[in-house]
Design a protein around this nucleic acid. Structure first.
Length: 515
RNA sequence: GGCCUGGUAGCUCAGCGGACAGAGCAUCUGACUCAUAAUCGGAAAGACCUCGGUUCGAAUCCGAGCCAGGCUACCA
């Protein structure tokens, strides 16, 4: 296993208001990043904001500020979200930062030198009111009228720089054939493959009809299109556009680019082609998740039913951040179909998993030790019986799932360990044996095994439930920060004599109110 | 229009050629009482969308159809 681990979110467009989509993507990356760090991997978790383009320019104008001021304001909002949800990104890159702009220009120069750029005429359906081009499909959908103001679209022409995407078709095909996991989930890979078979056109990569962007080197009036500008963030953040900050170079290639399915084409096709042109290694995997829908309805501006920041904060303040993360990660749209966010399902998940399983199991084990052994970890005179092997198996399964970005199965493995502890207690009945002083050794053994299994489960749950698992660890005297991963998850870490206090991690709450 | 994905217990989903179809939640029921009215056991619950085909054998493979959703390049 390589020693570095790196993961990225897309950089978020500053014209959007933060909603559950942004928080979801960033949270699943956060879980993975925490899991990797916990295992001692040198981890780099990147997010940021995409700040160029005609839309930003226009919004800024409408608000009477400069584009930079507008971008500053909205980027700050995205930064605030990271704080709010305790997301542990290692860097936050903005496409208007000099470090990014300079490297993008250098990278474009390299593309030019590699002979994959050329100047050509672009013609398309132009929306004069919005000052942008529509794709053929979208133009047709809207009846060749502006989707915004209904005025007819016009055919317009301009001269642009093009990227010779078509030249990379064979290599892209080879990529998708030889690395079936390059795009996940599989349904998304199939979509890309299908489109690849239809053939590739070259793509324009500059515009001349607006100025809020990175200038094309050596060609005044041309601005580098936002998509290429934005894609490059993944390597400019690491200093790969120049050699001035080599300490971050080992983080490339990224293990995972986690994205929403709407931007799959750029990440699965254009991005690898650009990297091929630059002769740089490709990311290990582009993971395209699906979307949340809300109480059975697609979220849209017209319905005004986005799960926005206030709505999310409502859940967090009622149920806690752990609960919000848990629901998103274990029930969220990580596979190829969209997932419904329902207040009732949220509540049921909270009660079943966090209150009844994680909370209650921790509580009964710590309570029995508090009562029977005055809050001191008893000796395990039977050395754990089946438990050491069982825990080792679960830890391995968890590690394997985590490595593959299978967050649901990783969570299930961890919580399954607690279900086993519950079953073990019911079978061995330590609470009954405790009434017979002659069987104290048995009780000691049973409870020691339970506490140790709970401790290990708590470690595995920590990336998902960082807040309350910290509480659990301090309640059972786990030496989290001082131990390396291997020793931490090994059976027997909880020494006899350690102080143990009763915990109540997740309070039982009244039924859900509408979110 | 083209391509892709899904249609399995009340709900969310797993299984994707082989023995009576599985899990979690919900329901009913028995046990237990250490624990947050919790936990553990048991039960009930399914023409595995339809029709046809391949096969000794199909939820699982193939074909057609129906239903739902997605993608269709400059909207991050």
């Amino acid at each position: 296993m390589k020693s570095t681990a790196s993961i990225t979110t897309p950089i978020y467009y500053v014209n959007d208001k933060p909603h559950i989509g942004h928080v979801f993507t960033t949270t699943v990356c956060d879980v993975w990043a925490r899991a990797m760090r916990m295992q001692g991997r040198d981890t780099f978790f990147l997010t940021g904001t995409d700040e160029h383009g005609v839309k930003v320019e226009k919004s800024a104008l409408a608000h009477g500020v400069t584009p930079q001021e507008w971008a500053d304001r909205n980027a700050a909002e995205f930064r605030r979200v990271l704080q709010l949800f305790d997301l542990t990104n290692d860097d936050f890159i903005r496409t208007t930062e000099p470090r990014h702009e300079a490297q993008v220009q250098a990278l474009v120069e390299r593309l030019k030198a590699a002979g994959v750029l050329y100047k050509g005429a672009f013609e398309g359906w132009y929306d004069e009111g919005e000052e942008n081009y529509l794709t053929e499909t979208r133009a047709k959908e809207s009846g060749y009228k502006s989707p915004v103001n209904g005025r007819p679209l016009v055919r317009a022409k301009e001269e642009n720089w093009y990227f010779r995407l078509s030249a990379f078709a064979p290599r892209l095909m080879e990529l998708f054939t030889s690395r079936p996991d390059f795009v996940r989930p599989e349904a998304r890979r199939n979509e890309v493959l299908g489109r690849l078979r239809e053939g590739l056109q070259d793509v324009p990569m500059t515009r001349t009809n607006f100025s809020w962007g990175i200038p094309m080197p050596g060609d005044q009036g041309h601005v580098i299109y936002v998509w290429i500008d934005a894609l490059f963030n993944y390597i400019t953040a690491l200093g790969l556009g120049n050699d001035s900050t080599p300490k971050r170079h080992p983080y490339w290639p990224a293990d995972f680019h986690v994205i929403g399915k709407e931007i799959l084409w750029f990440h699965a096709v254009i991005w690898p082609a650009l990297l091929m042109a630059l002769e740089m290694p490709l990311p290990q995997c582009v993971f395209a998740h699906s979307f949340w829908i809300h109480e059975g309805q697609k979220m849209s501006k017209s319905l005004g039913n986005f799960i926005d920041l206030p709505a999310m904060e409502g859940y967090v303040s009622k149920y806690g951040l752990d609960a919000f993360r848990w629901f998103m990660v274990t029930r969220g749209p990580l596979d190829s179909t969209d997932t419904d966010f329902r207040a009732l399902a949220f509540h049921e998940t909270y009660v079943a998993d966090l209150v009844n399983t994680v909370g209650n199991c921790s509580s009964r084990v710590t309570a029995m030790i508090a009562k029977t052994f005055d809050g001191v970890m008893p000796a395990d005179s039977f050395a754990g019986g089946e438990w050491p092997a069982r825990c080792a198996t679960v830890v391995q399964a968890w590690q394997r799932h985590m490595q593959q970005f299978e967050l649901g199965p990783a969570a299930a493995a961890a919580i399954g360990l607690l279900r086993e502890v519950d079953g073990f207690i019911n079978r061995t009945e330590p609470f009954k044996l405790a009434k017979d002083p002659s069987r104290r050794d048995e009780v000691s053994s049973i409870l020691a095994q339970c506490a140790e299994a709970v401790r290990i489960a708590g470690i595995l749950l920590e990336p998902f439930l960082p807040h309350r698992m910290k509480d659990l660890q301090s309640a059972i005297g786990d030496q989290a920060p001082t131990m390396d991963w291997e020793s931490r998850v090994r059976w027997g870490g909880l020494k006899p004599g350690t102080r143990i206090t009763k915990v109540a991690l997740y309070p039982r709450l009244e039924a859900a109110v509408a979110g």
